[in-house]
């Protein structure tokens, strides 16, 4: 019986998240459209509201082309790795008090583990397609993920030190209920590092070198078509949501808000996550892409030292206070 309820909960979460993903693409196209003085999708349904559903049906019925020289098992499996790892990290995210599938002690580390595994999907997709563009995309993604995982992890060490826990629910509750007690203020350096590393970890503009259209056609997904392409797309958006959730939980006080919303406790959480996603999209519409050496320099020479400094300052502060 207990297993059945858990499966039901997982199914509900999956359906809701996938619907959110579908409409996040709509959200993105609309916002970028308006920022570039266009209308965005308008034709399918009222103001293009049915566009994501049309896109979904389209990619579902498209032919799944596999290149003749590709490494077939890995080519077929790579998008699945990407999507599964991203979906797995949803299990530990607390959407509101008690609204979490698996309230484990190492929630934060679990998410790091899953996000580092997602890079395998990208790397293997790049290699298995057996094409120069995809291969270069895969190599770039590999180097980028390894370099930016370090500042991403280090930037959250300050949060771990302040809350004394790796459990995401405890991190939220230890931030208290008021605006000024959010970890955003004592951890402002950590937040800065986290935000940049988050953009790089999700392969978003200005760090979307693995799929740089102008140089690599579409990077590691060049050879993919139909539903497998859509799987990569979904994985990218779920990755954005997971990273936005981590930012919300660790720096913005999670589900706490100015007042309680009856019947729907995750309201503030979802609002904050969408705030983050709006920033992602805003940055995509505004900034040009980084050059590869600039990307590496930023990661290793600025973000990692800043994150280490943040850990040092947090530690000193903790010693002085106690």
């Amino acid at each position: 019986m207990q297993i059945l309820t858990i499966i039901l909960q997982i199914a509900i979460l999956l359906v809701i998240v996938l619907l959110h993903v579908a409409y996040a693409t709509y959200f993105e196209r609309k916002i970028i459209g308006h920022m570039q003085v266009r209308m965005g999708p308008m034709l399918v349904g009222y103001h293009g509201l049915l566009q994501p559903i049309a896109d979904g049906i389209k990619s579902f019925f498209k032919e799944d082309v596999i290149p003749a020289q590709a490494d077939k098992p890995l080519f077929l499996f790579a998008p699945v790795i990407c999507l599964v790892t991203m979906l797995t990290s949803l299990a530990v995210i607390p959407f509101a008090k008690g609204w979490v599938l698996a309230d484990i002690n190492i929630g934060l580390l679990f998410i790091f583990a899953m996000s580092s595994l997602a890079s395998y999907g990208v790397i293997l997709a790049g290699w298995a397609s057996n094409s120069k563009y995809t291969f270069l995309g895969g190599l770039r993604s590999m180097a980028q993920v390894i370099s930016y995982e370090i500042p991403l992890g280090l930037s959250l060490v300050g949060v771990m030190m302040l809350s004394g826990s790796l459990n995401l629910t405890t991190i939220v509750t230890s931030q208290g209920n008021s605006f000024s007690s959010m970890y955003l203020f004592p951890q402002i350096i950590g937040f800065f590092v986290f935000f940049i590393a988050m953009l790089a970890e999700t392969n978003r503009v200005p760090f979307d070198l693995p799929e740089a259209e102008t140089e690599l056609v579409s990077g590691y997904i060049t050879e993919y078509s139909g539903m497998r392409y859509a799987l990569f797309f979904m994985a990218e958006y779920i990755g954005m949501m997971v990273m936005a959730s981590i930012g919300t939980i660790c720096f913005l006080g999670g589900w706490n808000g100015p007042f309680e919303i009856p019947f729907f406790p995750p309201f503030w959480f979802i609002l904050k996550v969408y705030g983050f996603i709006f920033f992602f999209i805003w940055i995509r519409a505004t900034l040009p892409r980084y050059r590869y050496d600039q990307l590496m320099e930023l990661g290793w020479k600025l973000l990692i030292p800043l994150a280490l400094l943040n850990i040092l300052l947090t530690g000193l502060f903790k010693i002085l206070v106690h």
Partner: peptide, 15 residues
């Protein structure tokens, strides 16, 4: 367990 996956599977094997 988490460190095993982050460090070995996530970083060293990628290298």
């Amino acid at each position: 367990a988490a460190i095993q996956i982050i460090v070995y599977a996530g970083a060293i094997l990628v290298l």
